[in-house]
Amino acid sequence: MALTDLPLRVVLYEGPGATPLATDDRFAAVRSLLEGGFGVTRSGAARPVPPVDASPLLVLGRWDGATPVTESDTRLRWGALDTATVTAQAEATRAEFGAPATGPWKPWFPVIDYDRCTNCMQCLSFCLFGVYGVDDAKRIQVQNNDNCKTNCPACSRVCPEAAIMFPKYKSGPINGDSVSDSDLNREKMKIDISALLGGDVYSMLRTRSERATSRFSKERDADKALAERQKCLTKLAALTSDIPPEVLMSLPSPDEIARRATEAAAKGRAALAAQSN
């Protein structure tokens, strides 16, 4: 990531040379900046704050004298704090530095709990949208957040270990709440994706080290596989009531689903084969 991709950091300065803010003003300024998508540091001596890095800085305060001035070729700007216009001040500085804007995308994407993940590749095999991939060590990882369908937690439903979280989901354990045995035993946490893949996936997983190379090698009828995947998605929607209709409606064409499913299965097969080597 280039330096220009670092977000603007706004610092509320209340130390020597500046008049401390009234608490109402401090609250108003911080809340306004946060709602505008800006991170804020309220500095002081009583507790540490994260150190300066290469992020562009806008330092705002109620200065006792003139507002400090810095050379224009630095990534630091000073300003006089006005709670009514603080977000506009920050936005102008963000634009000047070319720092990234945030929002309004809802950050919806899977977060893997590697304490629980067994690297079984079911999520990779299930996802039609290429969200998952593997790293150089053939470990599952989230690679394409932006491909994830907002409000759809389907992949977390197929994870046998409840290792996939969506922190903005409404309920546990998908939202990151602790996982109980009953969660794992709950039928809705154990959507059997074997129907999608045309085989007894769970059985195969139990013996995957021996059978990894042949797991996906069976010939399958493409039409049947597609019908079964669609059936599974319908079942998911019925069981969980939380697969947004727009997600189901936005699924690719049947041919495209078949192509992506083949691709995802191949990635899963390759990753499992690599594990067994």
């Binding site: 608490t23 540091t41 945030t102 950050p107 994407f109």
Partner: peptide, 27 residues
């Protein structure tokens, strides 16, 4: 946030940790 501001303590406030994580923000 109100009580944090009232405390007078230094702090760091971020709009949304999920968003920072999604962008793998170096901050």
């Amino acid at each position: 946030l109100r009580q944090l501001c009232d405390s007078g303590l230094p702090f760091e406030a971020v709009p949304d940790l999920c968003e920072l994580s999604a962008r793998r923000d170096p901050s």
